[in-house]
Amino acid sequence: MAALLALGSCWSPVFNPDVSLAALTASKLSLDVQFTGLEGGSSNTTGYLAVPSPFRPPTQVSVASLSLTGLGLTLMTNTNGTWEAASSNSGGQNYDSAIPDAQLTTLSAGLDGASLASFQPGVGGGTVSFIDAGSTTQYSTGVVLGASAYPTSAAVTLYALVVPVLGSNTVTVLPFGSSTGVPFANTPGATVGTGTYTGSTTYGWLAFDPINLVAYLTHYPKSSSGQYTTDKIQFTATTATLAGSWTRSDRVAAFLTTGQLLTRDGGYYDVCNAGGSIQSTFAAGSLTFAGEYYDAGTSAYRCWFTEVLSTNGAQSSSSVNVRVYSVPTSQLGSL
């Protein structure tokens, strides 16, 4: 009886809330492409994040993996149904540099594939590091709070908010690239805005509205009740002022071309208006918002969601399936 009790007490039913929640919403999305049989990579891989590039065919996806050896970025290509990782010998698309002990937080589509932002916890807050798609160099000119992509028809600009010195209250918004061929990240574009804001703790997530020059920044630390505080900061060319703030269980994810804010609350995404009020909620789970792009075929903006599925419950020896879904941005509120 003791042995049975011991065996049973280690038992739990097959259930992963993230996978199940994703399945609820995935049935309402278009499955654009699916990659199967990707090797899990290094042992002890614990997390994946995938994102397609709006400038590449949907059969090319950037995959970030987190392992004990760090955080890596790989551009994966599916040719005739075969999944292949572009090696460093074929165009320098294999970004296997690593950030030790990083937490995977943001992966944003860029001009030349993808860029990666990660949050590295540390005493007094932490450091956000940035790996761009054009270089394997890891750098942090100041502290990068995060990356935010925003499509304008066929062009996509990637923005980053940088705090020059950790603890400083001055923030700068930098456009990191565009479809016009500006070298990504190596030569940051003109400063969109810089100024003083009231934030006093480290920010972890960023959404940027380049039309109205509004940044939505969610503090990384949670309150004692487990809630996040999100600041809405209005930029001008020379000033940054706090235009609003709210404390909830969600954090910002993206600013959409519909003028809505997408936030993440555990296993769910919330669609909010520009003021932060929640308009609708849909299940997300292991679905990750991977960006918004302009679909010339339908002359409409669509949102990409990706899902990385381990074939054996994230065991180290498992292989990985990547699924890329899309849905018109205008339909997000009805999912």
């Binding site: 065996l7 259930f15 992963n16 599925l309 074939t311 054996n312 419950g313 065991q315």
Partner: peptide
């Protein structure tokens, strides 16, 4: 017997910590 309409989702739902085998 578990009905699994999508095998990939089922495999991804397995917990690496469970002692159960399927």
């Amino acid at each position: 017997f578990l009905w699994i309409p999508d095998q990939s989702l089922f495999l991804a739902s397995l917990s690496p910590n469970t002692q159960n085998a399927y």
